[in-house]
Nucleic acid binder design. Structure first.
Length: 334
DNA sequence: ATAATTTGACCTGA
DNA sequence: TCAGGTCAAATTAT
């Protein structure tokens, strides 16, 4: 029985990567075409798809010991997240699954990512598009660095429940492990807000996926060969200001960067194309990497069963019938 | 003046 | 009892 499920899991991963490959090809085609409003919009949708699928695929690998330890649990150097805490806060498992502490009854959405310090700075990870207010710091047993606790700035004004925890990794001081809890319900601007914003707000998984993947755009991870191939697909090449001069962004979150800001300073994320020559080359590289990842996973050892909780709670659905020419939604909440 | 951060105390679950 | 998470007063920054 296990074999059937395992091969099913692997087939699922291969299928996901195959779709990523297709999407990247479409993206590359679009990027080679003259940029107009329609193609820009199409690129935006494609990037959305790629972001979601790669994040999901990486999640599968993280939960797959047979494909090697996950980047967040492979360091073995005593990092609280890489060792003890990894079992408490699985990167793609809600906090409710944790045997630890508070919030045991709350149905938090949770997403853990590892991000680099902004611009190589030492203060903390890059801006993730939301405004946060620090409300605590705690020394964690066995960790070299304290953990900082942040809540959404709009917690009081809009009852936004989103929180995050940031902790510098033991082994790579330039890297931070960030765990997001809850979803933002704070609204941008005083108006009714865009439908796109509303949709995203109602899909915390998509939100988390965007944050997760965009974080990994500059993430340095330690991976096994297979995971490295996948990780590379997500991590290559960092969208620095140099590679994306149009945006001139200083944040490594460029690919899934904030596209709007309201008077409250509550940013909402979106995906912006970067229609410059360098970006087109980057798309080619991405396709190449995805292809190699696809090949690597296709020949990988059988993927062990993904636990039901992971599949039911942490995998947002993906519209298999998605067509590029149809309206936006392709991520949906199962 | 207001907002954000710091930090010790307190609370909660294991 | 302990460790992680949160509160809230004091402090600092804007």
């Amino acid at each position: 029985m296990a074999d059937a499920v395992e091969s099913g899991g692997r087939a699922r991963l291969v299928s996901e990567l195959g779709r990523v490959q297709d999407l990247v090809r479409q993206l590359e085609l679009q990027l080679r075409a003259p940029a107009d409003a329609a193609s820009v919009d199409l690129c935006r949708r494609l990037v959305h798809q790629i972001v979601a699928l790669t994040d999901r695929s990486i999640g599968m690998l993280h939960s797959s010991p047979d494909l090697g330890p996950s980047p967040l649990s492979a360091t073995g150097t005593g990092s609280p997240i890489s060792s003890d805490a990894a079992s408490d806060h699985h990167p793609f498992r809600p906090a409710t699954a944790s045997p630890k502490k508070r919030k045991a009854t709350a149905r938090w959405t949770s997403q853990q990512v590892r991000v680099s310090a902004a611009g190589g700075g030492a203060e903390g990870p890059a801006d993730d598009g939301h405004s946060w207010r620090k409300y605590g710091q705690k020394d964690i047993l066995g960790a070299k660095h304290p953990r900082a606790y942040y809540r959404c700035t709009h917690r009081n004004s809009q009852n936004c429940p989103a929180t995050k925890q940031v902790q510098r990794t033991d082994d790579h001081p330039a890297l931070f492990d960030v765990v997001y809890h809850g979803e933002h319900i704070c609204r941008p601007g005083g108006g009714s807000g865009s439908a796109k914003w509303a949709q995203q707000q109602h899909n915390p998984h998509a939100q988390a996926a965007l944050q997760g993947l965009s974080a990994r755009l500059t993430v340095a991870t330690t991976t096994t060969a297979d995971a490295a191939a996948i990780g590379a697909a997500a991590a290559l090449p960092p969208m620095t200001p140099e590679s994306c001069p149009v945006r001139g962004a200083s944040s490594p979150w460029s690919l899934a960067s904030p596209v709007g800001s309201d008077s409250n300073g509550c940013l909402h994320q979106g995906v912006s194309p970067c229609p410059v020559p360098g970006y087109r080359d980057w798309a080619s590289d991405l396709q190449e990497v995805v292809s190699s990842a696809f090949a690597a996973v296709s020949s990988a050892a059988p993927l062990p069963v993904l636990d039901d909780e992971f599949m039911s709670l942490e995998c947002f659905g993906f519209d298999q019938n998605f067509e590029i020419d149809t309206a936006m939604p392709s991520l949906y909440y199962p």
